[in-house]
Design a protein around this nucleic acid. Structure first.
Lengths: 189, 189
DNA sequence: GAGACATATTAGACTTATCCTATATAAGAT
DNA sequence: ATCTTATATAGGATAAGTCTAATATGTCTC
């Protein structure tokens, strides 16, 4: 459901086509929302039915025609109401944590290898965060007002802090493991 | 897809019915996986079709009959393979971050109120984490081997660290806002 | 001039998840 | 007596997300 409002949010900045939205979403909010291209088109159709957006056909001679979507005043109100409402917490689903929870079934060596893999992924994600600001400078020029920028930076900061906490967690776990602190069950060979 | 392995993981500890699994999941892994009851039954049916679990009918005179599920050797291998494979990162979806990203459309007062709401929720989640260990002591006695416990505690530690990082983020944001650091756009009234 | 790549939209099949509800039984409370 | 809670399973409807690929055109490179 938040995809509806992510799209409304962008259309509130500027009119976009489905194709534009995919690019803009990928560049700006990828760190907390990944949008499937075909889901974007379906959502646009739904938002049109709901009267939250209007479609404008823009003919192009050299390329396929674009369908550019504009937010309506109904859509604008709906966005504001959602923004000031409770956070959409939804359902918690962390696949990696499921893996960790049942990891006792693996050998100590395999477990250590898994955690080093985790730490490696987390470090590379942290490295990617450094590049996001520049990418936005180049591609995503409609959300550049200082006020909008402030909140975009807040989401980036949240991602950074969370990922740093995750990495510290993985490193602390590895340290414990290397100190031989994984308990061994009796039936374990 | 991780629900499949969460269920396999528990059946690897002990045979359970769908009803048991719902309770066990709610008590132990709720902080990173919330399972819909009817989804559990559907998943058990799917796992049975796949040959990963077997169903055993247990007749009861006073109550409806139980269908107790046992993991098969095929299921056991599948679990081990999944556990030693790459972390199921899946798709990133954070509704709250969508809210923050587009929050510039609200007034400064509403924004501050939203963030204080966030911080409040985060504090109460942190308080709930303290109660989880006791609940597990009481209800969830099959996952009590020291080795299994070690990994259960690791998932708890991850949740704690993440939530603490989130709270620090919200508090830092509130501080900035109170210091009048939210930029104001020209067209803003 | 062949092939790769970028632009631009959309459909179809499939999987997964969520919500609500129905069914049945019995214990315990008010 | 009735209401709630607990035990136990499951179906229908809807929503949401994923994967794949079809359609159409222009540019750029080798």
């Amino acid at each position: 459901m938040s995809l509806d409002y992510a799209i409304l949010g962008f259309l509130n900045y500027h009119p976009y086509s489905g194709y534009d939205l995919k690019k803009v979403l990928d560049v700006s909010v990828r760190h907390f929302w990944n949008a499937d291209q075909s889901q974007i088109y379906r959502t646009l159709a739904r938002l049109t039915d709901a009267g939250y957006v209007n479609m404008e056909m823009v003919e192009q001679s050299q390329r396929p025609d674009r369908k550019v979507y504009h937010i309506t005043s109904t859509g604008h109100s709906a966005l504001l109401q959602w923004l000031s409402g409770p956070p959409p917490l939804g359902s918690t689903h962390s696949g990696p944590m499921v893996q960790v929870f049942f990891m006792s079934a693996l050998s100590d060596a395999e477990i250590l290898r898994q955690f080093e893999g985790y730490a490696h992924i987390m470090r590379s994600v942290l490295a990617q965060y450094d590049q996001v600001p520049q990418q936005v400078e180049n591609v995503y020029q409609d959300v550049q007002s200082p006020r909008e920028r402030f909140f975009w930076l807040l989401t980036l900061d949240s991602g950074l802090r969370t990922m740093r906490a995750n990495l510290e967690w993985a490193e602390a776990a590895i340290k414990k493991m290397k100190a031989g602190q994984i308990p061994v069950d009796k039936e374990q060979k």
